[in-house]
C-alpha cells in the first residue's frame, strides 16, 4: 500500500490537539509538562469547553503554560493560583476553571491557598505536576523531594534532620471534606497517559457538576534537574517515586454525591 494512500484525512488517528498551538514549548526535551498540556487541551476540547475555560498558570516551569494552550489564562503570583481560581469560579460559575501548579508552587509557598481552596470545596480542578524538584530555578530541593535525593540545595541528599520530610499533598487533600476527587497519575507510558486523561476528564466534569474540588497529581520527571536522560528519568521515577507516591485514585466521592 502506498504511503499517500494511508495519509488520507479519514485515516488520521492521532495529531497534536488543536488547542495546543504551534508555539515551541520552552520545556526541556522529554519533560512531562508537554504531555500534561496535551491532555488538558484534549479534555477541554472533548468537553466542548474551549470557549468557557479559564486556566490559572503558576510560577515555576509552567509559568508560560498560557503561551501554549489557546484558552483564556491568568498568570498568578507564586503559589496563589488556587486563590485566583476560587474567585474566578465563584464569579463565573458556568466556566471551567483549573489551576496548573508544580510542587514548589503548590506544596510549599502556596500550601495555605491550596489547602483552603480544596477545603472550601471550590468547584475547581488543581492539576499538580510533582517532579520532586524546583525545575525553573535550577534543580533545588522541593517539599516533595524524596529522602536521600540529591538536589542543588541538598547536594548530599535530603536528610530529615536538616530538611524534614517529603510532603504527600494528595493524601492531605483527600482528608479534606471539600474534595470530591483526589488522584495520583503519571504520564510516562501510553497506558499511564490514557489513565491520566480519564482522571483529568473526571475532575473537570466534577468541577462543572459542582461536586467540589478535585486534585489531579501528575507524578512527573524532571530529567534536567535529576540529571538523567528522559528515558532513564522515567525508570528512576518508577523505581523511586512510585513506591512513595503511589499511583491511583485516593478519593472519589463524586459519583455518589449528587
Amino acid at each position: 500500500m502506498d504511503i499517500k494512500e494511508i495519509m488520507q484525512p479519514e485515516n488520521l488517528v492521532y495529531k497534536k490537539p488543536e488547542l495546543l498551538n504551534d508555539t515551541a514549548m520552552h520545556y526541556c526535551p522529554g519533560c512531562s509538562h508537554g504531555v500534561v498540556h496535551k491532555l488538558i487541551s484534549e479534555v477541554i476540547a472533548e468537553m466542548g469547553m474551549e470557549n468557557k475555560t479559564v486556566g490559572v498558570s503558576p510560577v515555576g516551569c509552567a509559568v508560560f503554560a498560557y503561551k501554549y494552550i489557546d484558552i483564556d489564562w491568568e498568570e498568578a503570583a507564586h503559589g496563589r493560583a488556587p486563590a485566583l481560581a476560587s474567585a474566578v469560579k465563584r464569579l463565573w460559575p458556568d466556566r471551567l476553571v483549573f489551576t496548573y501548579q508544580g510542587d514548589g508552587d503548590l506544596a510549599c509557598i502556596g500550601t495555605a491557598e491550596t489547602i483552603h481552596a480544596l477545603n472550601r470545596g471550590e468547584n475547581i480542578t488543581i492539576v499538580f505536576v510533582n517532579n520532586a524538584i524546583y525545575g525553573m530555578t535550577g534543580g533545588q530541593m522541593a517539599p516533595t523531594t524524596l529522602m536521600g535525593m540529591k538536589t542543588a540545595t541538598c547536594p548530599y541528599g535530603r536528610d530529615a534532620k536538616l530538611h524534614g520530610y517529603p510532603l504527600k499533598v494528595a493524601d492531605i487533600a483527600a482528608s479534606l471534606e471539600g474534595t470530591c476527587y483526589v488522584t495520583r497519575q503519571s504520564v510516562h507510558t501510553v497506558g499511564a497517559i490514557n489513565k491520566a486523561k480519564r482522571a483529568l476528564r473526571k475532575a473537570f466534569e466534577y468541577s462543572m457538576q459542582g461536586k467540589g474540588s478535585s486534585l489531579v497529581e501528575m507524578v512527573s520527571t524532571c530529567n534536567s534537574g535529576w540529571k538523567l536522560s528522559p528515558e532513564k528519568a522515567n525508570k528512576w521515577m518508577e523505581e523511586n517515586m512510585f513506591p512513595f507516591y503511589n499511583l491511583g485514585d485516593i478519593k472519589d466521592t463524586g459519583a455518589n454525591n449528587q
Binding site: 494512500e5 494511508i6 488520521l12 492521532y14 508537554g34 504531555v35 497517559i193
Partner: peptide, 17 residues
Amino acid sequence: TSCAVVCPDGCITVYRK
C-alpha cells in the same frame, strides 16, 4: 500511536489504514 501519545511536544501525526 504510542509514539505520538508519549511525545511531550506533540510532534507526531499518525495515520492508519
